[in-house]
Simulated scan of single mutants.
Amino acid sequence: MKIEVKCEVENCKYWAEGDQCVADSILVVANSGKQAVNERETICDTFEKM
């Protein structure tokens, strides 16, 4: 199943025109521990700087 993933981080090597993420898989983690209260407490570990 294909899922559309949007990303606004233009200096990530997986960023594509139209704010599309073109990574084969995405890893999102909590800033600390295994639980997050809101989106600000998460981070995309898939990010790789261009």
Rank of each mutant, 00 (worst) to 15 (best):
G33W: 12
T42D: 06
I26G: 02
E48S: 09
N38K: 10
E41Y: 00
W15N: 02
M1D: 11
D45A: 09
N38M: 10
Q35G: 06
N11W: 10
K6R: 13
S32K: 09
V29G: 01
E10C: 00
E8V: 08
S25N: 06
E4G: 07
D24N: 09
C21Q: 13
T46E: 01
V9G: 08
G33S: 03
E48A: 12
M1Y: 03
I26C: 08
E17L: 05
A23D: 10
A16Y: 07
D45H: 13
T42L: 13
W15A: 03
K2E: 15
K49S: 12
K34P: 01
V9H: 09
K49G: 01
E41A: 09
Q20W: 02
V9M: 13
A30K: 11
V9F: 03
A30Q: 07
E39P: 03
K13V: 15
V28C: 06
N38E: 07
A16S: 07
Q35H: 05
V22E: 11
W15L: 08
L27I: 11
F47M: 03
F47P: 02
E17K: 08
C7R: 08
I3H: 05
S32Y: 01
S25H: 11
V28Y: 04
D19F: 00
A36F: 09
T46P: 04
L27N: 07
M50P: 03
K49C: 08
E17A: 10
E17T: 06
E10V: 09
Q20G: 02
Q35E: 15
E10Y: 02
D45G: 00
A23S: 13
D24S: 08
T42K: 12
A23C: 05
F47L: 12
D24A: 13
G18Y: 00
L27W: 04
D19G: 00
M50C: 01
K6E: 14
A36E: 06
V28T: 05
K6I: 04
V9I: 14
N38L: 03
I43Q: 09
V37Q: 01
S32R: 08
V28N: 04
C21L: 13
Q35D: 12
E48F: 00
M1L: 04
T42C: 05
C21N: 12
D45Y: 06
T46W: 09
L27E: 14
D45E: 14
Q35R: 15
K6Q: 14
K13D: 10
E8W: 09
E4N: 12
C44V: 00
T46D: 04
T46H: 12
D19M: 02
Q35N: 07
T42F: 00
S25R: 10
I26L: 15
I26H: 02
G18P: 04
G33C: 11
I3P: 03
M50F: 10
V37G: 11
V9R: 14
D19V: 01
E17I: 07
V29D: 00
S32M: 04
F47C: 11
K49F: 09
T46F: 04
K6S: 13
C21T: 06
D45T: 11
